[in-house]
Amino acid sequence: MTKADKNDNNILFQVSDQLPHDLKDLFQPDSSVSPQMDWAILDRAQQQLQHQARSKRRWLPWVVSVASAAAVVAILLNLDFSPVPAPVDQSAHPISPVLAATDIDYSGRVDILDAFTLARHLETSSQPDTRWDVNNDGLVNNRDVDYVAMAAVRLEKGVL
């Protein structure tokens, strides 16, 4: 390195103390806002807020309408529109095996006389007919009588 080069380096590092202040003044944004600008910004902000409020109010009827429509659809879906079933023509259907089993006297219907007939049978017979084990518990006893009697008074009897 020559003597001349050393002198050049010294020159580069010797800057004025005023330089940072000058640079700051030069590039710092102007922070002063005029009152007119301030009012304009506030006015603009108010307009924006009112617009948002109007937008919300504009949505409200739509939300209510959609919710009401959904409610109506939900109610309609919950209602039972299935047609009332026509009375069953008992003669057109085969007798249910379960009900037929309780028709002890073969009268074609299950009533208290079936239970009465079975009760009399149990009283008079030492070996009850196993066909009358209507509750399928392997025994023919008063429980079968009760079973038949309850079948006789059942409100929804089916086809018998």
């Binding site: 208290i112 006389l113 008074v153």
Partner: peptide
């Protein structure tokens, strides 16, 4: 209601 009874 359907009501029934018997007695032997």
């Amino acid at each position: 209601i359907i009501i029934a009874a018997f007695n032997t």
